[in-house]
């Protein structure tokens, strides 16, 4: 260190942790964006906005994709850009219809790479039954981007009878999870320089709207749905608890985790509750409907391993707790920043 002290705080900078989907993200959203844009539709803080135009209920959402590497086991940035946005629409109970796609490309990206991504995006859109109807392209100087960023915006329609929103969770409701957690996050981590592990881990990236349709067909007593992407299952549950002013109790033994994800998490000291998913959903349903909805989920290819993982309670509002595998209960907090591999 030199004789003079280092320049003072960088607390006013955006850090990578602000994009992790945890507490820092929530702070940024509240302090910067909500403060500026405050309105009743946005205030619901669901994954999509639902607006009525001439009596038609439209679901509207946007998402940007910055995944590194661009291609990973189980998907690529193109398919992810479709699934992410389709899922945000589906979590509002919408039938997804149209997408926009905007590409921010770093100078020097091979055209062949771009072609592969675009083809994959189109294939995913066709698979999900949505059409890419508008788009945009920008090229930034070398060093100003990371190869390729994609933004997609989605539009869908919501049936009049469907009202899904996080603030509707009530004490006594059941919490359902559509399958094993952590696949996407670990599949991406496995590709990262410096970690070098191998295994049959593929991202779970998938469009969930047909699963949602099957669930809604089984029961109308579904309170809310959300896909636990960045920040993982824990962030989603904490968001539900905060928005509905309820507590949530989950059972660690009931949460499915694949062996590959478990192994990676043990090795790197990570908690699967905080690892990202791209093809899973969490549902809060009325107690009487839980069994029917669970059966409908298990009858769908993307929900075969669905599980009842917990209940909503009035006891500790805004707090998520978990019964651990050995019996006692602990808090499941929202993560403050990115989860970092640890040695100790």
């Amino acid at each position: 260190m030199t004789a003079c002290p280092l320049p003072l705080p960088a607390g006013d900078r955006v850090l990578l942790g602000h994009g992790s989907g945890g507490k820092l993200s929530a702070d940024l959203l509240r302090d910067v964006f909500l403060a500026a844009f405050r309105n009743p539709v946005l205030a619901r803080l669901d994954d999509q906005a639902i607006v009525s135009i001439n009596g038609l209920r439209l679901a509207f959402t946007t998402d940007s994709f910055v995944v590194k590497p661009l291609f990973f086991p189980g998907g690529d940035i193109g398919s992810l850009a479709v699934h992410g946005t389709v899922n945000d629409l589906a979590m509002g109970g919408a039938q997804p219809l149209y997408l926009s796609a905007a590409f921010i490309i770093e100078e020097g990206l091979p055209i062949s790479v771009l072609r592969r991504v675009v083809a994959s995006l189109q294939e995913a859109a066709a698979g999900a039954g949505v059409t890419v109807v508008t788009g945009d392209t920008k090229v930034v100087e070398k060093g100003s981007g990371d190869g390729l960023f994609i933004n997609t915006t989605g539009l869908g329609v919501v049936a009049d009878t469907v009202r899904l929103s996080a603030d509707q969770a009530r004490p006594g409701d059941r919490v359902l999870l559509s399958g094993p957690i952590g696949d996407h996050g670990i599949a991406i981590l496995a590709q990262r320089e410096g970690l070098e592990f191998e295994g049959s881990i593929a991202s779970d990236s998938a469009p969930l709207h047909t699963l949602v349709a099957a669930m809604l067909a089984a029961s109308r007593d579904i309170r809310c749905l959300r896909d636990p992407t960045r920040g993982g299952l824990s962030s989603t549950l904490n968001e539900f608890a905060a928005q509905a002013q309820v507590g949530i109790e989950i059972d660690e033994r009931a949460i499915p985790v694949r062996e590959a994800v478990r192994g990676a998490c043990e090795l790197l000291g990570l908690d699967p509750l905080y690892v990202a998913n791209e093809g899973k959903l969490v549902a809060v349903v009325a107690p009487g409907a839980a069994e029917r909805v669970l059966a409908a989920m298990r009858g769908h290819p993307l929900g075969r391993e669905a599980a009842l993982i917990g209940t909503v309670t009035a006891v500790h509002p805004r707090l998520v707790t978990m019964r651990t595998v050995v019996g006692p209960t602990r808090i499941v907090d929202m993560l403050s920043g990115d989860q970092l591999p640890r040695i100790c």
């Binding site: 496995a190 070098e196 592990f197 191998e198 295994g199 049959s200 881990i201 694949r258 062996e259 590959a260 994800v261 478990r262 192994g263 990676a264 043990e266 090795l267 000291g269 640890r342 040695i343 100790c344």
Partner: peptide
């Protein structure tokens, strides 16, 4: 000191060191 048990699947000599492929649940490293 986080240390985790894993099973040796194979091992080979490389530049004076023995390097193993070790399995931890569903992954190896």
């Amino acid at each position: 000191c986080l240390a985790v048990p894993g099973r040796i699947l194979e091992a080979e000599e490389y530049d004076g060191s023995r390097i193993a492929k070790v399995q931890f649940g569903g992954i190896t490293r």
